[in-house]
């Protein structure tokens, strides 16, 4: 349903997208995972025919996003990253507006949005600008769905939304998937990657990896230890100073540490930390998460690269 071949896009000197190719099948939930500035929004704007690529081609539901842009627009529902509904229209007026623009009515497609819209329907007379973050997000999704699109393009729908509303939002997406809607969604939250069928990890306009969440995690071939001790501030300094440490970063209550050479005994590290005066040391072999993989792939930029400045 979504196909791109070698899409590139530059803004002046900045390469926003560098030869991006991807295929998303019907009914698939595909995630684009990466930080701000990685190129997620640029790719989505090209897919929804709002921006022209410099090079490469893209098709949505078989239609070229440049030549057949009108057909593409009928086929897709797009939820941009910034809240882009009319703040001075009510909830109901916004939904009605989007239905009318696409030549349909709320009643005709109510079934598709029932689960989502019914949660905000009690507030349908309220101005959209006065809704809470989670409610705005539900309204925006309802508006993107009201013309029964075959493909949903959701640009960071969960950014700035609290952890609970984020969970609820993903449940809604899973539910839409059962209706054979193809979904491509971007997020800076690595923990959401596991909820997608397949994901691409994007950084600086390039895909660093493209696979199922399990495939991505399995591609991590290094030893990973979770380490904890009573003085976190000093522990991090000492871990970084150990001659076999490659990287050490905080993950919740622990530090995840990778090594230059994976062949060593855990006791060796334990001894080193004890000698440094640490107490309550806990060292555990763990399996990586998506975030571990992402960080390994992107390396550790200690200073802004000259190219960035």
């Amino acid at each position: 349903m979504i196909e791109t071949y070698n899409i590139s896009k530059s803004y002046g000197e900045v390469k926003a997208l560098d030869q991006i190719s991807l295929q998303v099948g019907k009914g698939e939930l595909f995630g684009l995972i990466g930080p701000d500035g990685a190129g997620k929004t640029t790719l989505f704007r090209i897919l929804v025919s709002l921006l022209l690529p410099d090079k490469g081609t893209a098709k949505m539901g078989g239609f070229d996003v440049v030549k057949d842009f009108r057909k593409v627009r009928d086929l897709i529902g797009y939820m941009p990253g910034r809240f882009s509904l009319y703040s001075d229209l009510s909830v109901e007026e916004n939904l009605k507006f989007f239905a009318t623009v696409f030549g349909t009515t709320i009643e005709e497609n109510y079934d598709l949005i029932r689960d989502i819209y019914s949660q905000i329907e009690p507030f349908k007379k309220r101005l959209a600008g006065r809704l809470s973050g989670g409610m705005k997000q539900k309204l925006a999704l309802s508006c993107a769905l009201i013309h029964k699109p075959e493909i949903l393009v959701l640009d960071e729908p969960t950014t700035g939304v609290d952890a609970v509303s984020r969970k609820e939002f993903w449940e809604m997406l899973k539910n839409l998937q059962t209706k054979r809607i193809t979904i491509i969604v971007s997020t800076p939250y690595m923990d959401e990657a596991g909820l997608c069928d397949r994901v691409a990890l994007i950084q600086k306009g390039k895909f660093m990896a493209l696979d199922t969440p399990l495939g991505i995690v399995n591609s991590f071939k290094y030893r990973l230890l979770a380490i904890n001790a009573s003085n976190r501030y000093r522990l991090l300094q000492d871990l970084r100073e150990w001659n076999n440490t490659d990287s050490a970063f905080g993950f919740g209550q622990d530090f995840h540490v990778t090594f230059k050479n994976d062949r060593f005994e855990k006791e060796e590290l334990f001894r080193y930390l004890s000698e440094k005066g640490h107490t309550d040391i806990r060292i555990e072999e763990i399996d990586p998460g998506i975030e571990d993989v992402f960080m390994k792939l992107m390396g550790t930029p200690d200073k802004p690269q000259k190219a960035d400045l």
């Binding site: 990466g34 930080p35 701000d36 800076p188 976190r232 992107m298």
Partner: peptide, 24 residues
């Protein structure tokens, strides 16, 4: 107030190290 929204996972952690240093 939400100082780390949207940044990559490495930078997010480096930011917290600055916080630790300030607390120190």
């Amino acid at each position: 107030d939400e100082p780390t929204g949207g940044v990559d996972p490495v930078t997010r952690r480096k930011f917290w190290e600055l916080i630790y240093e300030a607390v120190h």
